[in-house]
Design a protein around this nucleic acid. Sequence first.
RNA 1: GGUCCCGUAGCCAAGUGGUUAGGCAGUGGCCUGCAAAGCCAUCAACGCCGGUUCGAAUCCGGCCGGGACCUCCA
Length: 484
Amino acid sequence: MPLRLYNTMTRRLEEFVPLDSTRVGVYACGPTVYRPPHIGNFRTFVFNDLLHRYLEWKGFGVTFVMNLTDVEDKIINEAAGMGVSIGEVTAPMADAFFADLRTLAVLPADLYPRATEHIDEMIDIIERLEKRGHAYRAPDGSVYFDISSFPTYGRLARIEAQSIRSGAGLSTRAGGIDADEYEKADARDFALWKGVKDVDRQVGAAWQTPWGEGRPGWHIECSAMSMAALGSTFDIHTGGEDLIFPHHEDEIAQSEGASGEPFVRYWLHVKHLLVNGEKMSKSKGNDFTIDQLLEKGYSASSIRYLIISAQYRKELNFAFDGLDTARTAIQRLLDFERRLIDMPTAADAPLSRLHEITEHALHDFEKAMDDDLNTPNALAVVFNFVRECNAELDRDTPTARAATDAARDALASMDRVLGILEIARVERADVADDLAVWADGMVAERQEARRRRDYAESDRIRDELEGRGIVVEDTPQGPRWKKA
RNA sequence: GGUCCCGUAGCCAAGUGGUUAGGCAGUGGCCUGCAAAGCCAUCAACGCCGGUUCGAAUCCGGCCGGGACCUCCA
């Protein structure tokens, strides 16, 4: 079955046909490492991960690249304010970013290029742009891209170059280092390179170039790093919806202007999330970090579940009660998985309908994901699968081991894309040794009480266990306990 | 002003021309010593007004409401 993706360039669902199926190139716009990433960022990064995982699940070889922006206005401001170099600002933020990725079970990218490590490639692109008549130098040492030299400018964002509001926001900002307070021939042109200012030197954000000292424009880094890693034409480029314009529009102009070849084949953009029904913003204080959510007692699996519970191009309201319901839903999956493991089986039992149910589930799952990564539908497939299997297991005991194994494999296979259970399993197993030993003992005591038909005592023990977050379940295979 | 998206049951969220989406919550039942887990049943829906159609949540028009982007926020 073909994978279909919504391409921002054409505003249509398109069948994904890579240049080379053994090496699908994906470039994801990563974080600007100047403050801890928030939950909004992670909608985008989890989406990237879903794409990464699903491409591999489909059997493609994938080269996944995500950049780190480590030189940029806000970073320079921050460093200047603290009296340190930009590296001292970005290093801890990059560490925090990677830690959060691990928490959310985001697969590592193959490459995490950083802007400051690709200055040479940027210089090369700018020189080529100059040679090809797309760039010009300003008296202050800046280099600008000449939009009038690139007729298709505006194609991605669907804007006429002429209609871009000239001078919007220019020269009106307070503060001395705003990037666009430079001399351009046309207000709509954008900076490829910015002539050096004192503050740049102070924080170590100045590099020598053939046209003088300075620092990169915002967009050039992604052109340089993506083409360096994936070639001048590659398959997929992703980012948050805010990046469509100007960032990605400018990337196209720079990259194609320099290479003379088509840049990206499929542009994928993630819609911004809402937090508790409101636009996320620093001023509202709802730009939660992963750590803040964990401190509030929410689990990483719940966070990831909530993020994938809406399709990536649709509005997603990241609300706390959504995290609570996510937790309950995940418990259901974990309980099901455990049931499959504990289920008594017999080698000579007849093959039940489990096989059929399992095959259908995998087929439907792929169909859902093929439809532009429709994760809500994919989750519906998983839950239907769980219900149908449970119903089958309720009436069919024992079951053939091959059938329960196949069901387990299918669940694991779907989770190789969704990445929920792999986190949740660890969370549930995270019980202190002494608590586990105590729980085992109490459960045994309770069994003894039940044997004596001393139900007052057995119920008392169950309450005591619950008081410490342990839930007891009496199954046909005996009592079991789990972390609530 | 320009570009675009969305309004689905108590909440979240798929569907996008005709057949139960799914999760969470609720109700009744089975199971259980009682529970839990599970299963079965059940409740409840397509913002409003028109139009197209044999048939519309799904297409078209209008209205109301919400939201995004338009020079550095994923």
